[in-house]
Amino acid sequence: MATFARSDNSVLGRWWWTIDRWLLSAIIALIAIGFFLTMAASPSVANHLNLDPFYFVKRHSFYLVPVLITLVSTSLLSLRNIRRVSLLIYFMGLLLIAMTLFSGSEIKGARRWISFMGLSLQPSEFIKPALVILCAWMLSERKLNPDFPGYVAAFVFYGFVIFLLALQPDMGMVILVSTVFFGQLFLAGLPLLWVGVSGVIGLLGLGGAYLVFPHVSHRIDRFFNPNLGDRFSERYQVSQSLEAFMNGGFWGQGPGEGTVKKYLPDAHADFIYAVAGEEFGLFFCLIILGLFLFIVLRSFARVLSEDNLFILLSVAGLAAEFGLQAMINIASTTNLIPTKGMTLPFISYGGSSLIALSIAMGMILALTKRRNKGRWL
Results as ranks from 00 to 15, higher is better:
A360K: 08
H218Q: 13
P345D: 06
G13H: 12
G205R: 04
L297I: 12
I328D: 09
E106S: 13
A274S: 13
V275Y: 01
M342Q: 13
R59C: 11
T333N: 12
I364K: 03
G252L: 02
V72Y: 01
S103G: 08
L193I: 09
L297P: 01
T38L: 14
S198H: 09
V177W: 03
A154F: 02
M342G: 03
G254W: 07
W15A: 00
V238D: 00
G196E: 01
A130W: 01
I328F: 12
G229Q: 10
I27L: 09
W376T: 12
L87K: 04
V180A: 07
F300P: 00
T3A: 15
L293Q: 09
M39Q: 15
I162F: 01
E306P: 04
R231K: 10
L192N: 09
I127F: 12
A110T: 07
R6F: 12
F292D: 05
V45R: 00
V132E: 05
F36G: 03
F232Y: 12
L144Q: 13
S305V: 01
A320T: 08
F54H: 15
S7E: 14
F284L: 05
E321Y: 13
Q240K: 15
I33Q: 02
R80V: 07
I31W: 00
Y63G: 08
W113I: 06
V275F: 01
G256V: 11
G104M: 03
N225H: 15
V177K: 06
H268W: 10
R14W: 07
A32V: 15
I28E: 07
G258R: 02
S73E: 00
